[in-house]
Design a protein around this nucleic acid. Structure first.
Lengths: 128, 128
DNA sequence: GAGCAATGTTTACAGCCGTAGTCGATATGA
DNA sequence: TCATATCGACTACGGCTGTAAACATTGCTC
């Protein structure tokens, strides 16, 4: 459609952890992100700052000045990211056949009884 | 169980392409691997050789001398790799709930009518 | 107004990854 | 036997990633 087909730069795993925080709260400052993940991942605030700038460079998030600091906001929707990553996996490992992935999960017992019921219900709903 | 809990080193994407060839034919020489993927990925034989040695280092494949060359064999099963990668994705993006992944695929229409039927059949079989 | 606290920017650095060239040894064919 | 092709090992190198320290700026408090 538009001329610049901005293929979104790939988000690394550490960067993704930061994105999760932003998706969770909508917006956050560097300090807030750190508060949310630094302990769990054993990161310093400096690390979070680096990740945030890289995400800005990759145009995955936007900054909005607030006094001397920035408020960061996701530019890509979580659903899009999740969809993209899922698709990558399915393409790479299951020849693009999503059903094969489900089959695999089922066969390796990665799906509990509850999971199975849940999926069943889902299918019923979709099939209406 | 055993004392040395060999956490398998991560296999990169390029390395994975090589693994696929080995999984496909069971064993292969460097030249054979190249024959199978060099054109498609636009690689030189040297690249394949590098990837093979890295895979040996990572203990993902084994070598067996045959004259002056090696025959390479996978040490890890494809199913294990696929399972591990799938689990990683589910853990990272769906909080470990595989059913959420299926729900996502269904909702984003990554699943066709046929896929749905196929999964349905699968579930029926598993539920017996 | 001077120092402290907070904040983004710049720089760093080791390790992994993609990609490949070069080297040394060896088998092979003339 | 001598050149040539082949093969793995070693080396290379730029880019990305994880992790963070140092630095510069600026707002705030006494």
């Amino acid at each position: 459609m538009s001329k610049s087909e901005e293929r979104p730069e790939r988000i690394s795993e550490a960067e993704h952890a930061v994105m999760e925080v932003l998706w969770d709260r909508g917006t956050a400052t560097a300090a807030e992100v750190c508060e949310a993940v630094c302990e769990a991942r054993d990161w310093s605030l400096a690390t979070v700052k680096t990740l945030l700038s890289r995400l800005v460079q990759k145009q995955a998030i936007a900054t909005q000045p607030d006094g001397r600091r920035f408020i960061y906001t996701p530019l890509i929707a979580r659903a899009d990211y999740v969809g993209g990553e899922s698709r990558r996996l399915v393409d790479r490992l299951f020849g693009g056949r999503a059903a094969s992935l489900v089959a695999h999960l089922a066969q390796t017992e990665a799906l509990s009884e509850d999971d199975l019921s849940e999926i069943e219900a889902l299918l019923k709903e979709l099939k209406q």
